[in-house]
């Protein structure tokens, strides 16, 4: 740490390092996120999950789309890809197909994954592509000024609905389950321990896994709706969240200021894309089928 540190009455060992730092490109700090934004908190949880899962970090790739959460890839000290708006999942699909030994994590926002990228999300879930999708859901398009997203709850004031949102919002966990995801969980940025544990679980699980993290956007969502700052939002999460593991996802809609059902909703085993590919081709072609060797030293 090059910056000045506060004179604090703690005896800090000289070799103490913030455990998040080895996972970040420290030469890119400070990050662009606003005061009270929850994205950094989710990054902490992700790094703790990487530590706890003993992942080989050289074999973890992170793919983001566009938006505030889309910047996570740029800060993560991993093989990282900042792709186009909505297309993190298909990029990640190609990466995984070409190099199946990679642990491919898609880290992006709700607008990116569920509006412009919604089609790719449902198809990757349908295929049970071995991707770990972490969606930081701040219920709005934050980077572009707080426009209505497919996740913005009814009655909320946004840049594009100054008199209140009237379109129904997507229930992301129900959508993920219906599309075929193997693992579906939702937490808020208040639930750092549970979120970190969930992330660790998906790093160990095969197939398409989805974690939704409800996160404050004090600058554009809470402020416009007179819901206070990031800390007020965290207190709201603490007070309004109900942990209901296994709850039917259809009952987990989010509202402007109501209860937030969190927990692990789906954890099932479906054949992965590779398993289905190999089984179908073996059934049809028998001995003539060889599993694809897409990694080529010569190319």
């Amino acid at each position: 740490m090059s910056e000045q540190t506060l004179e604090i009455p703690c005896n800090i060992p000289a070799d103490a390092v913030n455990p998040v730092e080895p996972f970040l490109r420290m030469d890119r700090m400070p990050h662009i996120w606003c005061p009270g934004c929850g994205i950094g908190t989710t990054v902490n949880c992700f790094t703790r999950a990487l530590i706890d899962s003993h992942a080989n970090l050289d074999k973890v790739a992170i793919v983001s789309g566009i938006g505030c959460t889309g910047r996570v890839a740029g800060y993560a000290n991993l093989d990282s890809f900042h792709t186009t708006h909505g297309r993190a999942i298909p990029f990640a699909t190609g990466l995984k197909l070409a190099n199946p030994e990679l642990q491919v994590v898609v880290y992006s926002g709700d607008g990116d994954l569920f509006a412009i990228g919604g089609n790719h999300f449902i198809h990757a879930a349908r295929r049970n592509m071995d991707l770990k999708v972490i969606c930081v859901n701040n219920l709005t398009y934050a980077m572009t000024g707080g426009q209505t997203a497919p996740t913005t709850p009814s009655k909320v004031i946004s840049a594009t609905n100054p008199y209140g949102v009237f379109e129904p919002a997507f229930n992301l966990v129900a959508l993920a389950e219906a599309a075929g995801a193997s693992y579906v969980a939702r937490w808020t940025t208040f639930h750092v321990k549970q979120l970190s544990r969930s992330m660790e679980e998906v790093l160990r699980k095969k197939g398409f896994c989805f974690i939704e993290v409800i996160s404050p956007c004090p600058t554009l969502y809470q402020r416009r709706n007179k819901m206070g700052d990031g800390l007020d939002t965290m207190k709201y999460y603490k007070q309004a969240s109900k942990i209901r593991h296994g709850a039917p996802t259809a009952e987990c809609d989010l509202t402007k200021s109501g209860e937030i059902v969190v927990g692990k909703f789906v954890d099932r085993d479906r054949p992965s894309y590779f398993e289905m590919l190999n089984s179908q081709m073996t059934e049809t072609l028998g001995d003539r089928y060889a599993e694809p060797e897409v990694m080529c030293e010569q190319c």
Binding site: L6, I8, P9, N18, V20, G40, R48
Partner: peptide, 27 residues
């Protein structure tokens, strides 16, 4: 933030997990 009760610190690092700006940690 500043430390007002250093003797109470358990080193749980919950502060580190919450901090969105990677500015604090405990051990």
């Amino acid at each position: 933030p500043n430390v007002m009760a250093a003797e109470k610190c358990s080193g749980c690092d919950l502060c580190g997990m919450y901090c969105p700006d990677f500015a604090i940690f405990g051990a």
